[in-house]
């Protein structure tokens, strides 16, 4: 596992030496800050128009869950930009040949790559949740839904990174990798919208496959194993596919 840290170290360095990281960071913080402001202003306006509104709903919690939902959507757009180069760029620069002829196991390489993408996206998440911290400072939101939503977003981002890693290993072209990752995740996303409310039959299956459905459950503050298992299997599945894809690359190239 020591080698995974070597890879993580190098990947994060690479991220912060490339303009993409700074563009993503700036864009993400700008938009999420702006949205937080809007959600907050909207809530305050409603509150002043309707004084009976604040009972029995916890307004800060409402703000946090709206904001969390939005951050999830934003990840959908920015996640592919973070993962697109992971393998595609190595293949294009032929540096994969260095990695695969070095004394490092494929598994260590894949985990190293995976966690560096995850760490980067977690940095984004933590930075945007500074807004939420302020709310905790000035008011008393419900803790459980906030934590649930935060956990949900972490798992959601982790799934996105795992899918993105797999897609990136399939091509030498970063743009293609980004677009395919986005489309695949969007399709999974839509599964939930099309199969809303039904939990049986093929609609139920498709609905279960959608990360959005499980994210929403967690964001309501309902933390059950069912959703966590879903995310963990999603992540493992695509990490396994990445492993296979890198292996097959050796046979093909």
């Amino acid at each position: 596992m020591k080698k995974s840290f070597v890879i993580i170290n190098k990947e994060l360095k690479s991220y912060f030496l490339s303009p993409i990281a700074y563009l993503v960071l700036t864009f993400f913080l700008l938009i999420s800050g702006f949205v937080f402001y809007i959600v907050l202003a909207e809530a305050v306006k409603n509150l002043t128009l309707n004084p009976y509104f604040n009972e029995p709903i916890n307004v800060p919690s409402l703000i946090i869950s709206t904001f969390g939902g939005f951050v999830g959507t934003l990840f959908l757009f920015l996640g592919p930009l973070i993962t697109m180069g992971v393998y595609a760029d190595e293949r294009k620069k032929k540096t994969l040949e260095l990695l695969l002829t070095s004394p490092i196991r494929d598994g260590e390489l894949i985990l190293g790559k995976y966690f560096s993408g995850l760490i980067f996206i977690l940095i984004l998440l933590l930075a945007s949740y500074l807004n939420v911290l302020i709310l905790f400072y000035v008011s008393k939101p419900d803790l459980l839904p906030t934590l649930g939503a935060f956990l949900g977003l972490i798992l959601f981002a982790a799934s996105l990174v795992s899918l993105g890693n797999f897609v990136s290993s399939l091509t030498e072209n970063q743009i293609v990798a980004a677009i395919i990752t986005f489309i695949l995740f969007l399709i999974l996303w839509f599964f939930d919208i099309f199969t809303r409310e039904s939990t049986t039959g093929w609609r139920g299956v498709l609905g279960y496959l959608s990360p959005l459905k499980h994210l929403q459950t967690l964001q309501r503050g309902v933390i059950n194993l069912y959703d966590i298992v879903y995310f963990l299997s999603f992540i493992s599945f695509f990490l396994f596919l990445t492993y296979r894809s890198i292996e097959s690359l050796k046979w093909r190239s």
Binding site: K10, K13, K93, K94, T95, L96, E97, L98, T101, P103
Partner: peptide
């Protein structure tokens, strides 16, 4: 692999470093 040093056809360089 740890006993081998290898220069591929295209030098595998991380150009941003």
């Amino acid at each position: 692999k740890s006993k081998i040093g290898y220069l591929p056809e295209n030098p595998p360089l991380y150009t941003e470093f």
